[in-house]
Design a protein around this nucleic acid. Structure first.
Lengths: 255, 255
DNA sequence: CGACTAATTGAAAGATATCAATTTAGGTGG
DNA sequence: CCACCTAAATTGATATCTTTCAATTAGTCG
């Protein structure tokens, strides 16, 4: 993974601010808090474990650049990636009441990470819809963090449906559309093209397939003119067709 | 489904109180609130939709008796059950910031349902770990509701791993162990035996299998002496063996 | 140029789905 | 209690989808 891919335009809002402000309007001091949190990113290599499985009190962190995943390993070595984490995503933000096997979190590429302890109390309060104990209105940041949590649940639901009831071909189409939508929310997509920094082995572990079949499925999508891959970037050539194939229901187009 | 299976010992704590008090100690007034919420259950038939997919403001409800599920339908009729809901489970408790396709909630058997609007504000506040805006300690009920939410996330993670990386045989074993653990939390298990009121078709839709293969897999488990089915009850004959087969990591280690 | 890792291929085995009956169980009306 | 009805469970045969195994080819980096 070329490290340069972690560069970003100076002055541009980082992925975390970009994403959360897309969920709810943030007050100036809230935006400032986020900028402060993301001011000093730490660069970690691929395969860094950010959170151990079953950890009771994980460190709250945000992913500024690079991809990661939550995964679970079976005793015999099989691996299932539960959800892929992208720039702007939050890790270990919710306090666990007890250690449970939610999976470990590991970087898939080199990544920029920030400690985000400052967000935890706000995330904790973000359940307080409109009038909890204080009767106060929910702050913008709390609302955004709550929305972020809801999106995480949606990704899990999507993952269940993909794995349970879709063919390999459909799964990949669906997954790519989800990635596109999520990356678009942090300005990582131009004309349906985005960097795609993971190997087919990782993709296979995410979509519950063997590497070989993953490879063949990807080739089929390319042959069908639906996607195009060059080096570490991917282009979705025909989004409507992909949507039809995957029966994809995005966050935006709902009844 | 015989309606009598919905009966329960008079005076015994209902499933909701039983479960939540197992997650965190409840104050007397909290327990009273729960008893009040569950005082007037409504009996609904199987296949009742409790919550529509993408519904923005679902009614908060609790499931007192009977089984239900959250599910998503694909355009061509395929169905994936995302999570099975058991007595004591909560539905539509968290306020959604916007309508998203989290799936619809439908009863799988006749069920007793209670409106639970009274719990929503408390659930909303249950993010407030130890010291949100008020700096106050989290109440027992809020802690319990938060734990309930964490368990829901765990079930989703388990479902992803089952569907993504386990064989049919392993999936069923894993699922049965999870059911046993969850039902035990509401006193529905005696000596590894519990009522099992769903058809193989439903099971198949939950585990991402065809009905025929579901049937054969179940037969294999029976032939192997791992489970025993009589009428509408199932017995896990060899839990340690099932745990080994399924690579099951439970929340606790049950008796 | 090696030494890797990732992508790709071909062939064969294994798992699961589909199709089409058939049998079983439970509930109902006579 | 029996005949009958329908949903559920079961079976056998066959078609598909996926995995596994074993190489082979590309691509990257020191």
């Amino acid at each position: 993974m070329p490290v340069e891919s972690l560069a970003r335009a100076p002055g541009a809002p980082d992925a975390v601010l970009r994403r959360l402000s897309g969920y709810a309007p943030l007050a100036p001091d809230e935006a400032a808090l986020l900028r402060q949190v993301t001011a000093r990113p730490v660069l970690v290599p691929a395969r860094t474990e950010l959170m151990r499985d079953g950890e009771a009190a994980p460190r709250p962190q945000v992913l500024l650049e690079g991809w990661a995943c939550r995964q679970r390993l079976l005793a015999d070595g099989r691996r299932q990636i539960i959800v892929v984490l992208l720039p702007g995503d939050l890790v270990g933000l919710d306090q666990r009441r007890r250690p449970l096997p939610f999976g470990s979190v590991t970087t898939l590429t080199p990544a920029q990470i920030c400690e985000a302890g400052a967000l935890r109390e706000c995330a904790a309060a973000s359940g307080t819809a409109q009038g909890g104990e204080t009767g106060g209105r929910e702050t913008g940041l709390a609302a955004a963090l709550r929305q972020a949590r809801e999106m995480e649940e949606l990704w899990l639901v999507n993952q269940v449906v993909r794995l349970g009831r879709q063919t390999a071909y459909e799964r990949v189409a669906h997954f790519l559309l989800e990635l596109r939508e999520r990356l678009a929310a942090v300005d990582r997509v131009q004309e349906n093209r985005f960097t795609f920094p993971i190997t087919q082995e990782i993709l296979a572990d995410a979509l519950g397939l063997s590497v070989v079949h993953m490879n063949r499925t990807m080739q089929q999508l390319r042959r069908d003119g639906l996607v195009e891959q060059r080096a570490t970037a991917i282009t979705l050539r025909d989004v409507p067709a992909l949507v039809a194939i995957a029966d994809y229901a995005g966050a935006h187009d709902l009844p």
